[in-house]
C-alpha cells in the first residue's frame, strides 16, 4: 500500500508538457527563472553595493556607469532593484507556502470530516474572506511591527481562506473513493489517510492556485512597502524604492519608473504562468 493511488498521477507531467507548449506560459516561466536567479546571485551580479551612498551622484540620471540612475542618497538603482528581487520573491514565496499549508490543511480536514467540523472551519474562512486583504495586511503589520517575518505572516493570513476552499472541494469527492475505504478497512488512522491518499491527489489544484496567488503576494508586499509598512530601510524593496522616488518624481522619474517596471515584469510573468497552469489543469479548457 505504499504507492499513491493513481487518480491523477500523471497530471503533473502532463501539465508541464502543456506549459512548455503554451508560449505565453513558458515565457512567464522563463522570466521567473531569470528573476529568481538574479535574486539568488545578487551579491555577485549587482554592479554596486546596494547600500553604498555617494552624495555626488544624488538623483543622477541613467549613465554608462549607473544604467538606471541613482537615488536621493546616490545609491545605484540597478543594484537596488536586483537586491529588491530577493525581498519580493522571498516574502511572497514563503507567505504563499505558509498559506498553502495552513489553508490546505484546514480545507482537507473540513472536507474529510464533514459535518460540524466542516461547518465551523468554512464559516471561519468566510469570516477571513470578509476582510479586504490589503487593509487586513496593513493592520496586521501595523500591530506586529514592520519586519520581514511579520510581513510574511500578514500576507499569509490574508491568503489562507482561498486555499482552504480549493482544498476542500476535491477532498469531498475523494474521501468516498474505494482506496480511501480500503485504507480505513485495514485500520489506517484518519491522519494517515489524509496525508497518504488525499493530499497527493489534491496537490495539483492547490499548487496552481499558489502560482496565481504569488502574483497577489508580490503586489501586496509592494503595496505595503509603498505605504511604508514593508521591510525596514535601508534594505532595498521595490515598493519602498517607489515610495522614496515618489517625492522626487518630477526631477528624477526613473526612480519610480524602473522599480515599477521590475514589479510589472514579475506580475506579468506570474500571471502568464498561473493562467497557463490553470488552463492546463482545468478539464473544461484542457482540450482547447
Amino acid at each position: 500500500m505504499s504507492a499513491v493511488p493513481e487518480i491523477r498521477r500523471s497530471a503533473g507531467s502532463k501539465v508541464w508538457r502543456w506549459v512548455r507548449r503554451n508560449k505565453a506560459a513558458s515565457l512567464g516561466a522563463t522570466i521567473m527563472v531569470i528573476v529568481t536567479l538574479a535574486a539568488i546571485l545578487a551579491p555577485w551580479i549587482a554592479p554596486y553595493d546596494p547600500d553604498e551612498q555617494n552624495i555626488i551622484l544624488n538623483l543622477g540620471p541613467p549613465t554608462a556607469e549607473h544604467w538606471l540612475g541613482n537615488d536621493t542618497y546616490g545609491r545605484d538603482t540597478l543594484s537596488r532593484i536586483i537586491w529588491g528581487a530577493r525581498v519580493s520573491l522571498f516574502v511572497s514565496i514563503t507567505s504563499i507556502s505558509l498559506a498553502m499549508v495552513i489553508g490546505g490543511a484546514f480545507g482537507v480536514v473540513a472536507g474529510y470530516f464533514g459535518g460540524r467540523t466542516d461547518r465551523i472551519i468554512m464559516a471561519s474562512m468566510d469570516v477571513l474572506l470578509s476582510f479586504p486583504s490589503l487593509v487586513m495586511g496593513l493592520l496586521v503589520v501595523a500591530v506586529l511591527g514592520p519586519t520581514m517575518m511579520n510581513l510574511i505572516v500578514a500576507i499569509a493570513f490574508t491568503a489562507i481562506a482561498p486555499f482552504a476552499r480549493i482544498a476542500r472541494a476535491p477532498t469531498l469527492s475523494i474521501r468516498n473513493r474505494e482506496f480511501v475505504e480500503a485504507g480505513r478497512t485495514i485500520g489506517f488512522s484518519d491522519l494517515k489517510i489524509m496525508v497518504r491518499y488525499i493530499i497527493p491527489n489534491i496537490a495539483d489544484e492547490v499548487v496552481v492556485l499558489g502560482t496565481l496567488w504569488l502574483a497577489t503576494a508580490v503586489r501586496t508586499e509592494a503595496s505595503l512597502s509603498f505605504i511604508g509598512l514593508g521591510v525596514r530601510p535601508p534594505t532595498p524593496t521595490w515598493g519602498g524604492m517607489i515610495r522614496d522616488g515618489f517625492e522626487n518624481m518630477l526631477d528624477a522619474p526613473w526612480l519610480v519608473i524602473f522599480p515599477s517596471l521590475a514589479i510589472l515584469t514579475v506580475m506579468i510573468a506570474l500571471n502568464l504562468l498561473g493562467d497557463g497552469l490553470r488552463d492546463a489543469t482545468d478539464p473544461r479548457l484542457r482540450h482547447e
Binding site: S223, F226, I242, M249, S260
Partner: peptide, 18 residues
Amino acid sequence: SLLGLSFPAFISAILLLL
C-alpha cells in the same frame, strides 16, 4: 486585460499621474 491585472494600483496611479 493581462496588463491591467498586473498593475498594482499605486504604480498605475503614479504612471497616470506622470
